[in-house]
Design a protein around this nucleic acid. Sequence first.
DNA 1: GGACCGATAGCAAACCTTTACTGTACGGTT
DNA 2: AACCGTACAGTAAAGGTTTGCTATCGGTCC
Lengths: 344, 344
Amino acid sequence: MTEVARRAGVSIATASRVIGATDYPVSLATRTRVLEAARALDYVPNALARGLLKSQIAVVGVVVHDITDPYFSEVVRGVEDAAAPDGYLVIACSSDRSSERERSYVRLLRSMRAAAVIFAGSGIDDPVANEELGRHLAGIRENGSAVVHLSPHAFGAPQVGVDNPAGIAAMVAALAALGHRQIAFIAGPTALYVASERLAGYRRGVAATGIGAEPRLIVHASFDRGGGAAGVDALLAGGAPFTAICCANDVQALGALQRLAELGLRVPDDVSVAGFDDISVAALTAPALSTVQLPLRELGRRGFAHAVRQLAGETLAPELLPTQVVIRGSIGPPRVVMTRGGRA
Amino acid sequence: MTEVARRAGVSIATASRVIGATDYPVSLATRTRVLEAARALDYVPNALARGLLKSQIAVVGVVVHDITDPYFSEVVRGVEDAAAPDGYLVIACSSDRSSERERSYVRLLRSMRAAAVIFAGSGIDDPVANEELGRHLAGIRENGSAVVHLSPHAFGAPQVGVDNPAGIAAMVAALAALGHRQIAFIAGPTALYVASERLAGYRRGVAATGIGAEPRLIVHASFDRGGGAAGVDALLAGGAPFTAICCANDVQALGALQRLAELGLRVPDDVSVAGFDDISVAALTAPALSTVQLPLRELGRRGFAHAVRQLAGETLAPELLPTQVVIRGSIGPPRVVMTRGGRA
DNA sequence: GGACCGATAGCAAACCTTTACTGTACGGTT
DNA sequence: AACCGTACAGTAAAGGTTTGCTATCGGTCC
């Protein structure tokens, strides 16, 4: 920059004012000379120096469980789409559901004075981990940066979220409308806040249909392919009959579908299967997965918008985005009742 | 940091040496006092100040076409996995195949003195865009940062790559081994370097089987779902008979599968379909997609490793990662010959 | 006993911007 | 004619770290 100023024959201050596009008055002639000098020298401003001064750099970190999971890549993309026009870069951090990795990422983000940290994944219920996390978040806020949660977490409700309970309840209602009375639920890991929201949605949905709750129809499993398969096995072993399986997450549903096929059970003839999230794969399986569509990209966009307004000092009410049930081939009217070991 | 030093009763320099974990000798007593002060104050070093001084920050940018594409999210994850242990953060930039967005991202990355910029997506053949890009890359290298290509591009071969031609040729060979003699190819956009590599692989594969090349069996289409569908339509309209379709990319193959189903053509009974990349969806479609597996995560990991060694000043030979044909349900022996309008 | 050495610790410059404050010139007011 | 406001340009400080160089001190070696 010093060079640019020298070449343009002006002071560094003036050059800075031209480059930085401030509203400080600079005569047209000077401005042109500076711009030309900058072009000739292929000058690119040093974001670090600028950031050091402002104690903030135009970067937003998005903490996800796994960028490879379509749910998260979609959210990250939403954040990026909203951030790019403002010149922000986005750092994606895959914590792999390890609160240790998560903390270490948040620390790094704090250390580099990211303008915002957006948590896309559900928080983990771990007091000791959350204590350190809380310290970091306080530090980040103190620095004037924004913190946004897109999912329920230890410190409360998300700033921008998706109405998980309503979504699951709607799916349960859709299954009930088809005639199902024994609807099983493969829930997520108990330590995950979203998982409990979704479980609550299931309970609410079941209650709304007037069916009595059957505890054996609820099994917990991890939020991945293996979890879905394990969930199916657990349900069959449980002995309580069911005609439909509602999964807390699409990836689980995929696993369930696969496991059912291995067991020779037909979907939806023998059992209906529903997922949640509507990741892009859902439409491509055989049969295509019925699921609940979440406005993930929009979630990301709003998350960033929320961060920006937080940076501007505004205080805003939390938003809750609506979901939509998508019916595809994997669900149908109930036929037979499942019991231990297969068809009754 | 000044505070930490004051609290520990030492100079800033000493505190820095303790925090920075340099090999400069500091007595154990002092070191302990500094560490304790840092903990008490919840001190987190300012990466911007550090970066300003070193003219480099522990961040690596990965330029992709779309983070939502499983191909790229997998590569990014590989980079991240390799980068995290070294304390590097990774910025994912979705250029959406726009060379303008790409340039703007690269400029931002240069402006923030990212330690490395890794290009995961194929370069675009656009001279004027590449001129500016080249200037930026030169600037980045001049700054002591690394530049790594994971795909062929305007400036030559990738530092770490995947053997695209060999992969496609192997798939063509597999189809030929099943008895196919009329193998169509849905190629990618002509402006994309990978696309031409894969086309070359197809040509090589076809030549190896001794079948004469039929120009009408090669159609160009975009690297997305719609491209695959359009490719199928173009092939059928082309009038040249074929018993198998080899796609330059899985996502295209998915589109082709969908289009063929709409047209009432059975896979693989009426026509075999093969993809390329082995994204995770490939195993879940009906029928499951035969494809060529690429070590994407490994590609990302090696890309980062390459960057690190570049930063250390080493000059290394380019690497080429092997691929593997994965046979699933979507291909089988040829039955009937396709012509304009459907089955012959 | 004095030169010298190794182990520590401190000083201060440098990294590159931004911005509050100061200075200058000029046209217009009273 | 003294004064004032406006439009521009420059000076210098500050932001948080790293690091080359210098300083101190207790000992070691002839």
